[in-house]
Design a protein around this nucleic acid. Sequence first.
DNA 1: TTTTGAGTTGTTCGA
DNA 2: GTCGAACAACTCAAA
Length: 484
Amino acid sequence: MSGTPDTDPDKPVLVLFRHDLRVADNGALSAAAKSGKPVVPVFILDEASDKMRPAGGARRWWLHHSLTALSERIGTLGARLVLRSGKTGAVVRALVEETGADLVLWNRRYDQPSIAVDRALKADLNEAGVATRSFSGHLLHEPWELQTSTGSFYKVYTPFSRALFSRGEARAPLSAPKSLRPFEAMVTGAALEDWALLPTKPDWSGGLAQTWAPGETAGHDRLARFLDDILAGYANDRDMPAREGTSRLSPYLAHGEITPFQILHALSSSDFDAPARDVEKFRNEVAWREFSWHLLHHNPDLHTVNFNDRFDGFPWREDADALKRWQTGQTGYPFVDAGMRQLWQTGWMHNRVRMAAASFLIKHLLIDWREGEAWFWDTLVDADPANNPASWQWVAGSGADAAPYFRIFNPILQGRKFDPTGAYVRRFVPELSDVDDKTIHAPDDIAKSGAAVKLGTDYPVPVIDHGAARKRALEAFETTKETE
DNA sequence: TTTTGAGTTGTTCGA
DNA sequence: GTCGAACAACTCAAA
């Protein structure tokens, strides 16, 4: 894997783009540029290979715009992005035949289905006399390189993060290539519009477009703004959903428009002015993403299988009506409903509210965490194959280093504590806009306050009483404590 | 091999 | 209103 493969300087090199839709800090693309060979950048929409989990609706919307941005960016470097769909192996073989490419480069992926695809691709190409080379991808460390002293993967976050950060500074990110040598012959590709990644009937993407600017350049603008205006005070403000107190970099990370190397490098080298406490807190969030990816690498079915098998017999309830009310933000608990509606409208939910909303589905409604994970997978622009299931399992208590069973978020207290003026609730639950700050989070108080809103007509009566739900959850979770 | 200390984000109750 | 304890045991990671 080291050194430059011995190839014909005038035969093209294929560069595969997958979830690394960027030109900067892109090892494969930089190597292609450096090789002096004609470059054929390719994006393959692969939902056909074995076990590939198709992107949800929100991610498809983002992908469309991100590919548009990437295509333009590559165009300015002198090359042309080719779009193809199908099984990765077959598509690449076809492209090699069409172009005469004798070298294929890509950045590594870390989930097992993708690893299997890439491993087979490498074997197949090498057998056909085509050289391949892969580069480190979107993680600070290859998952197989970070192990406990006994050689297993970390299952507890704190020692994991200690090990992660004790390895010294993350490498400096690569800058974008200045130019790419074009491949002159015509290579046919799909038209992005034909992939129908954007919703049409109905087009629900208006709120997403108002909220987000997908693409590499926008990601870096976002990082700059975060460092300049938001990082100072992050440790506290990140919990207040009415404020812009978080990085909002998650969708850019999920699509590989920005890398953790670029983020950590900026954190340690910039001349912004933020207290060490805030910087540390944010570095830990980056490390949590890394932790989730290492977990996924070692637990391929993280989105379907309990990490802790004591949960395998858990008495989940089937309740289509309650699930629907949760999904549509009609539970009758304003803080939860605001979060679910923010998700539906903007493709994103504030982290603090994600925990409260997830806890509500799992512990108040006793609905299987997989239902919630699937909903988030479909609706989040930052839906991530590792973060999403790892976080759901964390809330459920079945995950690695998970929340204890008796930690049941009280949606009323969470609202009062983290949205004390009710500004967040009012933004997404306009029915309650006239309810005052003191009562807006508690359904019982709203009913007694004399506010104009009529519960049961304008806004739903709570789907379940908090106290009763808490009691029921504690009893249900007793089942996970039985030892065989 | 055994031991030891520790473990993201909370809530409730009673003093 | 504030504060500490209880809510359980278990498993992990490292010495």
